Deep mutational scan, measured.
Amino acid sequence: NITNLCPFDEVFNATRFASVYAWNRKRISNCVADYSVLYNFAPFFAFKCYGVSPTKLNDLCFTNVYADSFVIRGNEVSQIAPGQTGNIADYNYKLPDDFTGCVIAWNSNKLDSKVGGNYNYLYRLFRKSNLKPFERDISTEIYQAGNKPCNGVAGFNCYFPLRSYGFRPTYGVGHQPYRVVVLSFELLHAPATVCGPKKST
């Protein structure tokens, strides 16, 4: 009989979020998941679920829940969905086509923008091939755009693969920082350890 609540607040209220190319993952297990707390949290810009209804989450049990978190621009949030393409979905964070879970995003301009620009948040701009679902690539190898080998030196046709967002408070909404948490639900042939409040007695 599990009684402790799942530590969703640790994920959602973290002081610093990860850059999207180096997205953070927390495994959540052996706890009671009260999703209504999240669902009623006012400032969400997006709360979209795939393969599961957000209002039914509290009735369900899962083997594991993974909480992935990172920061992207407002106009990139739409790429955090199954079957998407674009710089983020291709080179930074890719969801599987059969994704079961929820994508939760909110504007973090007050936290993550600075006058003069916040350059701490990076994304991958160049990559030889697209990421596989949930693949994480933190390499900083110089990207070779031409035929000539770069030998690890940036220059003509040789690019550092990461780019900084440089968030400023005055940017338009599409270019403002958004914090994103992706909850993915794993249902294995194993005992369920993460259940909603109704199922955990």
Rank of each mutant, 00 (worst) to 15 (best):
G86F: 03
T140W: 09
P161K: 04
T100P: 01
Y39H: 14
K132T: 11
F45P: 13
G116Q: 12
P169G: 05
P54Y: 13
V153H: 13
G174C: 03
Y93E: 00
N151T: 10
G152S: 12
N130V: 15
G101D: 00
I72F: 01
Y66S: 08
T63Q: 11
T3E: 11
Y171S: 00
N24S: 13
F47E: 05
F134A: 09
N4I: 08
V32G: 07
D137A: 03
K114R: 12
N118C: 05
N64M: 10
P43H: 10
S78A: 14
Y91C: 06
Y178Q: 06
W23Y: 09
A192Q: 12
A154G: 10
S36W: 07
K199A: 15
N24P: 03
Y50I: 04
N64Y: 13
T140R: 12
N92W: 02
D59L: 07
D98I: 08
K132D: 10
C49T: 03
S113L: 01
G117D: 02
D9E: 14
L131W: 01
A190K: 14
D68Y: 04
S129T: 15
G146L: 01
L188H: 13
V182L: 01
N109E: 02
K94F: 02
V37C: 11
N1D: 12
F45E: 15
N13D: 07
A105I: 09
R25A: 02
D59P: 06
K48C: 05
F185N: 04
V103H: 00
S129C: 09
F17D: 02
V11M: 07
S113R: 01
P177D: 00
F45Y: 15
R25H: 06
Q84T: 13
V173I: 14
Q79I: 01
D97H: 13
A46Y: 14
Y165T: 01
V11G: 03
H175V: 00
N118W: 04
A33V: 13
V20P: 07
Y50Q: 03
I88F: 03
K94I: 01
K56G: 12
F47Q: 07
N30M: 07
T140M: 13
Y21S: 06
V32L: 10
T3S: 13
Y178E: 01
A42D: 08
P7N: 15
G86V: 02
F45G: 15
W106L: 08
R168F: 01
A190L: 12
C150M: 00
D9N: 13
Q84N: 07
C61E: 12
A145F: 03
Y39L: 14
N87D: 06
K198P: 13
S164H: 06
R25N: 02
G172P: 00
K199L: 12
V182T: 04
F134W: 10
A81F: 04
S19Y: 02
V20E: 00
A190G: 15
P177T: 01
K128M: 10
A105M: 08
F70L: 03
N64W: 09
F47G: 07
A105W: 11
F17S: 04
Q176T: 02
S164T: 09
G155H: 06
V32Q: 10
A145P: 02
Y159Q: 00
T55V: 11
P43F: 08
K48V: 07
E135Y: 06
S108W: 02
H189D: 15
C31E: 07
V153K: 15
N75S: 15
C102F: 04
K48N: 13
L57Y: 06
Y93M: 02
F156K: 06
G196Y: 10
S200R: 13
F134S: 09
E186Q: 12
Y21K: 02
S29A: 11
A67D: 00
Q84L: 07
T201S: 15
S139R: 10
N1R: 11
N120Q: 13
N75Q: 15
V71M: 04
A81D: 04
I88C: 04
C49A: 02
A105S: 14
F12T: 04
H189I: 10
F70S: 01
G172Q: 00
T3F: 09
T140V: 10
P149M: 10
V181R: 02
R16F: 10
H189Q: 14
N109D: 05
F41L: 14
R136H: 08
N157M: 02
F45R: 15
K48M: 06
T140I: 09
T201R: 14
R136M: 08
